[in-house]
Design a protein around this nucleic acid. Structure first.
Lengths: 141, 141
DNA sequence: CTAATTGCAAAAGCTTTGCAGCGCA
DNA sequence: TGCGCTGCAAAGCTTTTGCAATTAG
């Protein structure tokens, strides 16, 4: 049995066509450094010839999020984007020109954040850090 | 003439009751370490007996943002919150228990962010950093 | 006076929900 | 077979927009 199906079972979700397809789409796009909105996933399904309702896409993505299979982000206001959940924490860099998503982890930044919260008398629960970037100009020869 | 009115004129906006009132509300709440949504501002206006339409609140807040008078944030998904614009850049700490907003600036974090973007071949344009925190437990005597 | 502004209501995105029928286990 | 799942359409929220009436300068 495929990995996707095992993941679904483990999450207590029935192995249905919409769920499997959506997982595959998210996995495939993962390599390209892109995140998808519910609408994106929906269109990808239609393009692939799979007739899945938009409401189902939303429901499935929400279930996946609860199950810890995917993470939801709200980079741009107005809509959510999703990515396959990773085991390790990471922050995001978003290229405003190519829409590329780069994930990174910096222990120093993590440490500084805890220190700052502490300084103000708080305990850090979680954080959201997004860097908006553009490609560096090529250096002149 | 009041400061608000000068700010409005400078922004090329006519000095109208809704705009003055909204500015006042934002300034007043500024001291309490809170940010307001459009709906919050709208309710505050009604409470104060000022009959301003919700659409106007949205329009005015958007104009203020364009004019650089206020900043818009999208901490929680689903809606925007506003604060009076500050001259200096700062990030936010959000207490999940009291809804208090603490603003902070850490030069080391700023520097690290530029360094990380650079490492990946990008130039840092801007960033969004929000720390979600809760009050530290009181230390035992 | 006249262009800017406002209020109301309608409409537009994104997302959720109710319900009847379909399908996995 | 039975409960979970899906599709469709309708509804919910936040925010925007069209338009006629109002108002600041």
């Amino acid at each position: 049995m495929s990995t996707e199906n095992q993941d679904l079972k483990k999450a207590g979700l029935k192995v249905t066509l919409p769920r499997v397809k959506i997982l595959q789409i998210l996995e495939r796009v993962e390599d390209k450094g892109r995140h998808m909105s519910a609408e994106d996933v929906y269109k990808a399904l239609l393009d692939a010839g799979d007739d899945v309702g938009l409401a189902t896409v939303y429901r499935v993505l929400t279930q996946f999020e609860s199950a810890g299979l995917v993470s939801r982000h709200n980079f741009e206001s107005g809509h959510s984007v999703f990515e396959m959940a990773k085991d390790d924490h990471h922050d995001h860099m978003l290229c405003v020109e190519t829409d590329q998503v780069i994930e990174f982890y910096d222990p120093d930044i993590e440490k500084l954040q805890r220190k700052i919260a502490d300084k103000y008398g708080y305990e850090l629960l979680e954080h959201s850090l997004v860097l908006y970037v553009k490609p560096k100009k090529a250096t002149k020869k």
